[in-house]
C-alpha cells in the first residue's frame, strides 16, 4: 500500500544548521496495517510523514503509494491518497469557515474544484450523520465557525475530514500531543474506532509508548533517520514499555533519555 524506498533528506544543506533527518529510510506497509511510530526527538518521525505527504521533496529515494510512484508530486497532488492530522489542532481546519464548509472541502479532497455550488444542501445530511458518530454534539453546529470550537473538537473534526474520503493511507502526526489527557484519550478512542471500522492503512506517530503498544498491529522505532526496530502481531502485543527502552539502548547504544517520551 505504501512503500518508502531508501529515502534520504537533509535540511539546510551546506549551512551551519545542516540537519540530516532521514538516512536511507525503508518501510513497507501492507493494506490495513496500523503502524505506530516511536522514537526520540530528531529521530525523523515527523520528517517521514512529511516526506510521504510531499510537504518537502526527498533528496534521494522514492515514495510509492498503492503502486504509484508519487516522489515527484507536490503535497496538493498527493492529497487524494492521503488523510492527514497534524499535531497542532489549529492546522487541520480553516478557523474562519463554517464546520460544514470545512467538511465540504474534505469531502472533495483530491477531486477537481469546479464552479458548482460548494455546499449542496443534500450533503448536509451526510455531514450531520458523520459528525454524530463523533459523539461530541457537533451535528447541531454545522454552521458554527470552526475557530469557535475547542482544540479537541477541532482535532476530532480534522480526523473526520481526513477520513471523509477514504484515504489510501492515514497519517497521524502526534495528533493528540497538544491535547489535555482526557481529550487526548477521547481522540485516540475515536481514532481506533474510525480506523477499525474502515480498515484504514494508518501510520501514527506518538510519543506515548503505552499508546504505541496498545494501538495498531505493528510498531516501529526510529532513531537517527532510520527504522531500528519493527515488530508486529503477537510479538507486538506482548511488548512492555521496558522492552522498548531496552531495545532502544541495545540498538542505539545510548540511554533512552527523552523528557518528551512518556515512560510508564
Amino acid at each position: 500500500m505504501l512503500k518508502i524506498e531508501n529515502v534520504y533528506k537533509t535540511f539546510n544543506k551546506g549551512t551551519i544548521n545542516e540537519k540530516v533527518a532521514l538516512k536511507g529510510l525503508n518501510l513497507e506497509m501492507e493494506e490495513g496495517d496500523f503502524i505506530t511510530v516511536i522514537g526520540g526527538n530528531g529521530a525523523g518521525k515527523s520528517t517521514m510523514l512529511n516526506m510521504i505527504a510531499g510537504v518537502y521533496p526527498v533528496d534521494e529515494g522514492s515514495i510509492i503509494i498503492d503502486g504509484k510512484d508519487v516522489t515527484g508530486e507536490p503535497d496538493y497532488k498527493r492529497a487524494k491518497y492521503l488523510g492527514r492530522v497534524f499535531q497542532d489542532p489549529m492546522l487541520g481546519t480553516a478557523a474562519d469557515m463554517e464546520l460544514q464548509e470545512n467538511l465540504a472541502l474534505a469531502y472533495r479532497r483530491g477531486k477537481r474544484f469546479g464552479l458548482k455550488w460548494g455546499l449542496p444542501v443534500r450533503e448536509k445530511a451526510i455531514y450531520r450523520e458523520k459528525l454524530a458518530t463523533l459523539g461530541l454534539g457537533l451535528e447541531d453546529r454545522l454552521a458554527t465557525k470552526v475557530g469557535l470550537l475547542s482544540g479537541g473538537q477541532r482535532q476530532a473534526i480534522t480526523l473526520l475530514m481526513a477520513t471523509l474520503q477514504r484515504p489510501r493511507v492515514l497519517l497521524l502526526d502526534e495528533h493528540t500531543a497538544a491535547l489535555d489527557p482526557k481529550t487526548a484519550a477521547k481522540v485516540l478512542e475515536l481514532t481506533n474506532e474510525i480506523v477499525g471500522e474502515n480498515n484504514l492503512t494508518t501510520l501514527m506517530v506518538t510519543h506515548n509508548m503505552r499508546d504505541a503498544i496498545r494501538m495498531g498491529n505493528r510498531l516501529v522505532m526510529m532513531n537517527d533517520g532510520r527504522i531500528i526496530y519493527d515488530v508486529r502481531g503477537e510479538e507486538k502485543e506482548k511488548l512492555e514499555v521496558s522492552d522498548l527502552l531496552q531495545k532502544f539502548t541495545e540498538v542505539s547504544g545510548e540511554e533512552f533519555a527523552n523528557d518528551r517520551m512518556m515512560l510508564q
Binding site: 480553516a94 478557523a95 483530491g110
Partner: peptide, 11 residues
C-alpha cells in the same frame, strides 16, 4: 484562512 489545511485537501 489556512494554507496547510488547503494543501492537505488537495488545493
Amino acid at each position: 484562512c489556512n494554507q496547510a489545511m488547503a494543501n492537505a485537501q488537495g488545493i
